[in-house]
């Protein structure tokens, strides 16, 4: 499941994972020893419903090459409906970012359950590959000194 032969560049991807499903899924990937590229930095949140557009944009601003947000599958939310509100927020944000020219694949959303360790590894792999194809994120990264274009 390894890649990275095409370039040595390892992107940094912030993954906001809900504690009950996706974080547990990521743990299960570990328990099952599914290997995936070391690009993902997981931020554990109680629920995907905790994630706002602001936080996603902040990750990009801070220099993340990609963002992954993952929650429980619809219907499985530990908090009943957090992921369903999140789904609406994310749907609009995703379309809007694409509208203003942020490449699709920078910001990714998915559902991973506590039993989907393999799925988590696959998603981590796939998101890493997407972001690698896009190259380092520049558009919303705030630089200390802006270089002249």
């Amino acid at each position: 499941m390894e890649t990275g032969k095409n370039s040595d560049w390892e992107p940094k991807i912030i993954a906001f994972l809900c504690n009950w499903c996706s974080y547990a899924g990521a743990d299960l990937a570990g328990v099952s020893r599914y290997q995936y590229p070391p690009s993902i930095r997981i931020v554990r949140v109680p629920c995907s419903g905790r994630i706002s557009a602001n936080l996603i944009l902040d990750a990009l601003r801070s220099g993340a090459d990609g963002v992954l947000v993952s929650g429980c599958h619809p219907g499985d939310c530990h908090y009943i409906s957090g992921n369903l509100y999140a789904r609406r927020r994310f749907a609009l944000l995703e379309r809007f970012l694409e509208f203003i020219g942020i490449e699709p694949g920078r910001v990714n959303f998915t559902w991973i359950s506590a039993s989907e360790g393999e799925q988590f590894a696959k998603v981590a792999q796939e998101v890493t590959e997407r972001v690698k194809r896009l190259g380092p994120a520049r558009k919303l990264v705030k630089e200390i000194e802006s270089c002249p274009a």
Binding site: L84, E94, T110
Partner: peptide, 23 residues
């Protein structure tokens, strides 16, 4: 208002594993 409600069958084409065509 749309962001303070939901439907179980809200569209979710953007969810990964439903990779969009042409992308």
């Amino acid at each position: 208002l749309p962001l303070s409600t939901y439907r179980m069958d809200d569209p979710q084409d953007f969810i990964l594993t439903h990779i969009k065509k042409g992308e």
